[in-house]
Design a protein around this nucleic acid. Sequence first.
DNA 1: TTTTGTATTATGTTATACATATAAAGATAT
DNA 2: ATATCTTTATATGTATAACATAATACAAAA
Lengths: 240, 240
Amino acid sequence: MKKLTNITPLENLSLVDKVEMRLKEYFKENNLKIGDSIPKELEFAEALGVSRTVIREALLRLRTIGVIESKKRKGMVLTQPDIIQNFEKAIEYNLLGEQTLTDIFELRLILEMGMADLLFARKTKEDLEELDKIVTKQEKDNIHTSFFSLEHEITFHGKLYQMSNNTTLQRFQDLLLPVFNYVHNNMTPEAKDFKYSKGTFVTHRDLLNILKEGTPEAFREAMRNHLEPHFEKVLHVVKQ
Amino acid sequence: MKKLTNITPLENLSLVDKVEMRLKEYFKENNLKIGDSIPKELEFAEALGVSRTVIREALLRLRTIGVIESKKRKGMVLTQPDIIQNFEKAIEYNLLGEQTLTDIFELRLILEMGMADLLFARKTKEDLEELDKIVTKQEKDNIHTSFFSLEHEITFHGKLYQMSNNTTLQRFQDLLLPVFNYVHNNMTPEAKDFKYSKGTFVTHRDLLNILKEGTPEAFREAMRNHLEPHFEKVLHVVKQ
DNA sequence: TTTTGTATTATGTTATACATATAAAGATAT
DNA sequence: ATATCTTTATATGTATAACATAATACAAAA
């Protein structure tokens, strides 16, 4: 049976809660689209028989999640909500629990593993050239040291996300970065100088070469190897 | 006449905007954590020299994104924001543009491809048994017809997400489902009865068997095959 | 015609009063 | 002394009214 997760009991709903629901109905019933303007606060207040205060609070909620925008004198219009921005706002307050943070850390690994097909389908000559420049510079930067550079990771992998040509994914990754850093910085020292299992260590150059001439399958396996230390961290810890 | 290029506009922030920023600072400065309670509305109003209404609007924003909760008489306390729920709210209004929707559709494909390692690391005997039941039932349901059943897809893949043992991912998928359905329903008829390229078609049973005795690598490739019609749709369309 | 002033309007902000739920204290019974 | 039942104080929730502000339309002036 389907779980009843997002249905709230009718009882202890505030007036604002009810009004918000009515507003949502109103939008649906009238099939309002992005760009449509909605009645003014006083009209809603009168129509629903509540004070302007309550209407304002309900509308403010909608504004907070980016469903409407308001302008003086002009009124309010429906807008396309920026789902990533909502995400961002919540994260800014540094109130996410440990579990959510590691969940997000895992999510990022999943994304990197899963985006291979998109990359191969959408890579352009320019992308590969730029990626080549990035890798070349990084190789110069640490000729002798093979030590893990977070900055290099971000630059290289960031470019990959960009190549996916999926704006939402890309912005999602921007958002996940701080979380990734946080979890990474909290890694145990042992985890940081992790030794790769198969001896061979897949570098950014290797990934780039596969991206140039290889296949999505090969890229996935190479990426899996490249991310091994991170996978090690999350997969070998017992989740409670 | 001289152009006014490098003159920055005066900040056009509303009072509530400013107050919200001050509140965020306040939380950071005082290093407030989940569960901590914050001063009451009137105290904030007095301290910042604005009306209670403005404070309320700023606090309401925080409440909307789930950073604080309020109770009568008790006051307000910091809470862990539910990032997925924010996402959800925005989606409920059906205002996402075509581009965002297809982005999300792609995102789901990426997730399914990328979660293999988590599945193998966290699968339990019980999970596999339950998955077996699901597959067996589905095989009975359509003995002769090999026709695409959305419901079956959801049940099977939903269980996979659940097995990932990543609550955020799981809820994320619940959220993505309606979008997935929407995009799927808008598929062209040709795309719906897509013929698999390699002749062989990876069934849920195949995926299950690999999950039981195979490797993440094998699972990924099988999943790639299983999702081929969907990938076909997104990868062979020119994005603008 | 272009600029500048002016009225209008819907949101933004303030102030005040009252309603409501409820935690906490106090009273009563066991 | 413990438990249960009132009372009370309090912080948020709601209502009302008034004014501020910015954006628009339109008239007046140049």
